[in-house]
């Protein structure tokens, strides 16, 4: 089993490299001369050329790519920000915790709201609450998070003064962003939990359990939910990507000091090294999260667990 886990982690490496390569290539397309951008418009042509030689900016594409990766991995050197003239690494890592906190809290919110409500909805199909939940979850999937964020801000922050509109210092700063980011996913999880549960309760083994005289509560929990949860976990895993993306926009709306707002700022100011490093990092974190959830899934599903216990 450990071997399997190890193998999966090792497999992350080529993926990480692939991600880095893709982003690096995309950034290649940015117009402008990095040397010129760093040294400023007043520097002489010779100085610029000299800088280019020193930093290896005239080297072929793959050489530069490998140097980048090498520096990043060994020295955590992701280059120098055009904006601050300081190493990119510093700012990124100082901002990372905020983004991670936001993502985690929002995902937890979505899961804790979506899944139980989805189960209820399925078990009480066609009830009044079920109809409402279906409509509400459908609605939230279509709502643009940033709009919903502004409405929430309007009501809770600006009018009621219960919560702050910006910043990331206190925990209360995370409430509105969490609702903003979490609700659409809560809706999504509700729908998928509901539909998998509905499928599962039609299965023969549920009827068998009923015929055995097992109480309904236990059937819902042990027989239905346990089986329904598996596809739901997959959906949760794949939602991490969208969640991270949504976090970027949410951070902008709420003026939070996270990686997402850094990316947006850097793009506006054409600070390519920061953008590249931040995007690559987020993408790798995403892959890591997916892997973890995948492994959790493998642990839970006895069919898969048995398969890999032997490897």
């Amino acid at each position: 089993m450990l071997k399997y886990v190890g193998k999966r982690f090792l497999a992350l490496i080529p993926i990480a490299l692939g991600i880095a390569l893709i982003i690096f290539s995309i950034m290649e397309l940015t117009p402008g001369d990095p040397a010129r951008l760093i040294l400023g418009p007043d520097a002489t042509a010779e100085a610029v050329e000299q800088y280019r030689e020193e930093k290896g900016l005239n080297d072929p594409f793959f050489t530069r790519f490998f140097n980048y990766v090498y520096n990043a991995v060994t020295k955590l050197d992701f280059g120098v920000s055009y904006r601050t003239q300081k190493p990119v690494y510093n700012e990124i890592f100082s901002r990372l915790p905020t983004s991670l906190k936001l993502a985690m809290v929002s995902m937890a919110f979505a899961v804790l709201i979506g899944i139980p409500l989805g189960v209820y909805s399925a078990m009480h199909q066609y009830s009044f609450l079920d109809q409402i939940l279906r409509v509400v979850s459908m609605f939230f999937i279509a709502v643009p998070p940033f709009w919903y964020a502004m409405i929430l801000m309007l009501i809770f922050a600006l009018n009621l003064h219960w919560l702050p509109t910006s910043g990331s210092s206190k925990w209360s700063c995370f409430v509105l962003p969490m609702l903003t980011l979490g609700m659409p996913y809560g809706g999504k999880f509700l729908r998928i939990t509901r539909s998998t549960m509905l499928e599962v309760i039609r299965q023969d083994y549920i009827t068998t359990a009923k015929a055995k005289g097992v109480p309904q509560r236990v059937i819902t929990r042990k027989h239905a939910l346990k089986n329904a949860l598996l596809p739901v976990i997959t959906t949760v895993a794949t939602s991490f990507g969208g969640l991270l993306g949504g976090a970027i926009i949410t951070e902008s709306v709420f003026n939070m000091n996270g990686l997402g707002s850094l990316i947006v700022l850097s793009i506006k100011l054409k600070d390519t090294p920061t953008v590249m490093a931040a995007v690559i990092l987020l993408a790798i974190i995403f892959s890591l999260l997916m892997l973890i959830v995948d492994l959790v899934y493998a642990f839970i599903d006895p069919r898969i667990k048995a398969k890999y216990a032997k490897t």
Binding site: I26, G245, I248, I263, F286
Partner: peptide, 23 residues
């Protein structure tokens, strides 16, 4: 394989990078 790698990058991030590079 290539598609898997591209999918490993969250959609918004990828879109942002492209927009960052191309304008």
């Amino acid at each position: 394989r290539f598609m898997d790698m591209v999918m490993a990058i969250p959609a918004t991030l990828l879109a942002l990078s492209i927009v960052a590079a191309l304008g």
